[in-house]
């Protein structure tokens, strides 16, 4: 039943389904927009609760043998067959949120450009970049000829990837400048931090490791090799604090998830 419901479509029926989805989404958005504020809050709460409930129940509900083609040992419960379609649906919703973000960006930069405000040149670059990338990506998919492919690669690899590398590489220059101007030892803790940072750095680089490479591979003096000290700092001292932070974040995330799921969260979700 489920495989028929979520059967992949091809050809004209695919286009019809896509158009149907857009029309349905448009109607739904129009209905949601026309709802009074008093009704929006319970609606969001119900949808959020049901969404969370599905995954929670599917995870905790006892499983039994549920063979699928090619996997006779497959386990699951009555909710398991919906996992894949639900994941696809959520990916589509995530896609819509990207669209929402794009509209928002266009509004902000469009206003800045129309009113000739400060930074209008940046806004113009934004529109040119977005339209060029979007057009070439669509053309590459629709008509994958050599010109479209090369133009797309020119933008994606030649510009986008190169800019990404450049931006990240600039961090090294800031680091060098900051290491000279900002890393000042004024207290005992700062001195300890500096010494540990240096040992970890030396232990993490090939030339640094050469400083103590002549120490024996076993025995007491082995413990003084820079990579062994680095390993001890990372696996014992540092990992304990990282673990504590991770536990804190985990508990915090659980609390936030429960608040959102049960509709207790205030702010952007429920307050106007």
């Amino acid at each position: 039943m489920f495989s028929n419901l979520f059967h992949p479509l091809h050809g004209s029926s695919w286009y019809i389904a896509i158009l149907g989805c857009f029309a349905l989404a448009g109607i739904l958005i129009a209905i949601l927009q026309s709802l009074p504020h008093a009704l929006r809050r319970p609606l969001i709460r119900i949808v959020t609760f049901l969404g969370g409930l599905y995954y929670a129940v599917e995870y905790f509900w006892p499983t039994h043998s549920m063979p699928i083609p090619g996997s006779p040992k497959h386990m699951g419960n009555f909710l398991t067959p919906f996992i894949s379609p639900a994941a696809n649906m959520l990916s589509v919703i995530a896609g819509w949120t990207i669209g929402l973000g794009t509209i928002n960006l266009c509004q902000i930069h469009g206003k800045r450009l129309l009113h000739a405000k400060e930074g209008k040149l940046n806004s113009l670059v934004f529109f040119i970049a977005m339209i060029a990338m979007f057009t070439l990506a669509v053309l590459k998919q629709a008509h994958p000829n050599l010109i479209n492919k090369n133009l797309y690669m020119l933008l994606f690899e030649g510009l986008y990837q190169a800019l990404d590398s450049t931006m990240f590489a600039l961090v090294a220059f800031f680091l060098v400048s900051a290491s000279y101007r900002a890393f000042r030892v004024r207290t005992g803790e700062a001195t300890l931090l500096m010494v540990i940072a240096m040992v970890v750095m030396l232990g993490q680089i090939a030339l640094g490791q050469q400083l103590t490479i002549h120490l024996p591979d076993h025995g007491f003096w082995h413990n003084f090799r820079v990579e062994i000290i680095r390993d001890w700092i990372l696996t014992k001292a540092s990992s304990a604090s990282v673990r504590a932070i991770a536990f804190g974040i985990g508990i915090g995330n659980l609390a936030v998830a429960l608040r959102v799921w049960l509709g207790l969260e205030r702010g952007a979700f429920f307050d106007s």
Partner: peptide, 20 residues
């Protein structure tokens, strides 16, 4: 890249020391 990365790290260490 190992020597480049090493020399860059050593430069940072040297600059921290020099600054202090």
């Amino acid at each position: 890249a190992s020597v480049s990365a090493s020399v860059a790290h050593l430069l940072i260490i040297a600059l921290i020391l020099l600054g202090n």
